Every structure is written in C-alpha cells, then in structure tokens.
Amino acid sequence: MKKITLATTLTLWPIYGFAAVEFSGSLGLQQNYFLENPKFSGQKHNDSTEIVTEPEATWRGNKHSFSFKAFGRAGSEDDERNHLDVRELHWSYDNAFVDLNAGVNIVYWGVTESWHLVNIINQVDLVESIYQDEKLGQPMVNATFIRDWGNLSFYWLPVFRERVYPAVEGRYRTSPPVDNNNARYLRTDKSANQDYAIRYSHYIGNIDLGIHWFEGIGREPVLGINDVGNYLIPTYAKIRQVGIDLQLTTDAWLWKLEAIANHNLYEDYTAAVGGFEYTFFQAFDTDADIGWLLEYIHDERGESGSVFSRDVFLGTRISLNDLQDATMLLGAIVDKETRETVVKMEISRRIGKQFTLEVEGSLFSRARHALQAYEQDSMLSLRFDWHF
C-alpha cells in the first residue's frame, strides 16, 4: 500500500507516466591498517575504524527520471576524510533525439586502468583515493544529441569545486601539508567563473572513440609554499584542454589510449597513457577469466607536474565468474628512471545476497622522489558492506 500511495503521489507531477521511488544503497564498516609508523610530526597512528554509507534513490517515469546518490564517511583519524558528498542529484529526460540532465552528477570518460587523463569534468575526491579514481559530484547541465554518426555532448558547469587534501593528522599528506582554507585563483574569479566542455563519442567498427574540449578552471591546482613556510597553498587557473580516448577491441585484446594537450598560464604540456589488456577466457579449463594489463604513462612536465610522469603499469585482473562474483585487480606502477614503485591491490567478493567484502592495499617501495611523502604509508584495508 505504501508503494501504491507513493506512486500515485508522484503522478501529480507534471510528467506523464507512473513510477515509484526505489531506495537502495549500502552501509559498511572499514578497518584500515598502516604497516609503518607515521613519517611526519602531527600525523595520527596506524589503525582506524570507519563507517561508510552510500544511499541511493531513483524515480523513473515515461522519459523522465530523477536520481540521488550520496557518499559519507565517519570515524577517520583525518578530519578532512570525515565528509559527506552528494555524488548525484539530477533530473534526466531521454528520447531518441536528445538526453538532458540537470543537477549534480558524475561523468566518467576514458579507457585506461592506471591513470585517467581525460576524466576532467569532476573534481577528484583525494581524501578517498590518491589514485584519483574517486570523484566529487559536479553541478552541471548536460545535453547529449544522439545521431547515427555519433553522440555530441555539451556541458555547462556553473560551480567550481576545490580539491580537498588530507589534513595535518592524516595519512597520504604532503610535506608541508596543504592549506585547504586559503586557495588562490590566478587571473580568474571562482564565483563568476563558467566552465564548458564538448565531447564527441562514436564507435567505428571495433574502435570506440572519444574527443573532448574543455575550457574553465583546471581541476588540478599548482601547490606553492606560503610566506611562513609551514603550508602549501593551492592555486587554480583557467585552462583549455583537448583530449582523445581510444579503445580497439580485437578478440581477446583491448588496445587503449588516452592523450591530452593542456594550455594554461603556468606551462603548456601534453600527456598520454597507452597500452593493452589481454584476457584468457575460461583459463585453465575453469570459469575464470584472467587478464594481463600493460600501460605506459608519459607527462612531459616530469615529476614537478605529475606524480606519474614516465611510468610503466603492469597488472592482472582476475574474475572467477562464480556465484559470489569474486574479482581481483593487482597492479604495480614503476618509474622507469628512479624505480619508485607503488603496488595496488583490490579484491571483492559477495557474501550471501546482501553483503560484500572488499580488501584493498597499497605498498610503496623506493619512495624517494615523487612518492617520498607516502614512503611510510603502505596500508591494508578491509571493508564489509550491507547492501539494502
């Protein structure tokens, strides 16, 4: 009866169609273990127990829909890591001619595994992942026109979101730490700025193609020391960026490329990530698929502009294709000159119908250059989620 009442109420909206709101999400407990004592004064010790929640709600009518998704974390030793963010809160309208979206959303571009160069719409949620694969929700208006010759997407991004760095007491922080409260803007006004992007995407035979253009405030600030010398100050500036992402599928091979050219007030540069993934399907006469990944990262700015600038990524992806949906990703990024290495591990498995167990780990070796701030931050985390 509650579902019927809710569905009836929603039809009072000026939208044709009948629908009900669907609620879902997860509530989890995460335990973090750092393998070494903190490197810097003021950092908290090794272990922490955190609560993580990701509630979702969706409503779908005839061509119209509404989506909500949030992320929250509490219990961390790092005050900046204790946060709540709205990942999605948007209205959508879809038909055969155009897809419209308005509100807060996350847009994912790109094809590579190790580093995501073209994924520029959303700000990085750096307190969640130093690998920059977690994003903050971005207010936007988006229109995608669907044609036989490809999809053409337009983005208006009226609000800029600053990157949040770990606090003084947090792990994975810089030395000196970043001052999150006094960001500067070079020749631009945050409150009056308007960001825009255009993306063309299409598939041609076995090739998936994406080309984008972006103009606005760059999501990655330049960090400079303050007058006292005890904090780094992030400075944001306007940029123009063009980029391309390609994926060629040939049987068990996936050939991948992401490349950008960035024009800004500091230093124009180009960067690229490219490589392949080869999958052995039903390996060793089992249901398991085993994939091997090899990618090369190049950023002409060098270590002064990017943590990963001349690095090789080698990894494996294993999917057991069992009832528990067990998967594992294990990879290492190695600087080909300094031999600095970071090893990343992700394992996930369902337990019953409503629970999942995730294991993640990071190991830093020979961290004496671009990764020296993380030298003693090797860690292992266990996360147990209830899905409702």
Rank of each mutant, 00 (worst) to 15 (best):
D148E: 12
K256M: 03
T5Y: 06
A259I: 07
A261R: 15
R199S: 07
G274V: 00
T144G: 13
D78I: 04
G218Q: 06
T112V: 10
G25W: 05
E169Q: 12
F364I: 06
F34Q: 01
W115S: 00
D227K: 09
H263Q: 14
V307E: 09
E267V: 09
I204D: 06
G302H: 13
P14A: 09
T327D: 08
K344Q: 08
E267S: 14
I347G: 00
F276A: 12
W149I: 15
N62Y: 10
E134D: 10
H263S: 15
S191M: 11
Y165W: 14
D94N: 15
D251I: 01
T327H: 08
I297E: 01
R173P: 03
I351L: 14
I51E: 00
N206R: 05
E80G: 05
E134H: 07
F281Q: 06
N82W: 04
V21G: 01
W109G: 03
K39R: 15
Y172G: 03
R81N: 00
H212P: 00
K69W: 11
G361T: 01
V242K: 07
F160M: 14
M140C: 08
L254S: 09
I146G: 04
Y131S: 10
A332P: 05
W149V: 13
T11S: 13
I260C: 06
Y196P: 00
L320E: 14
L84A: 02
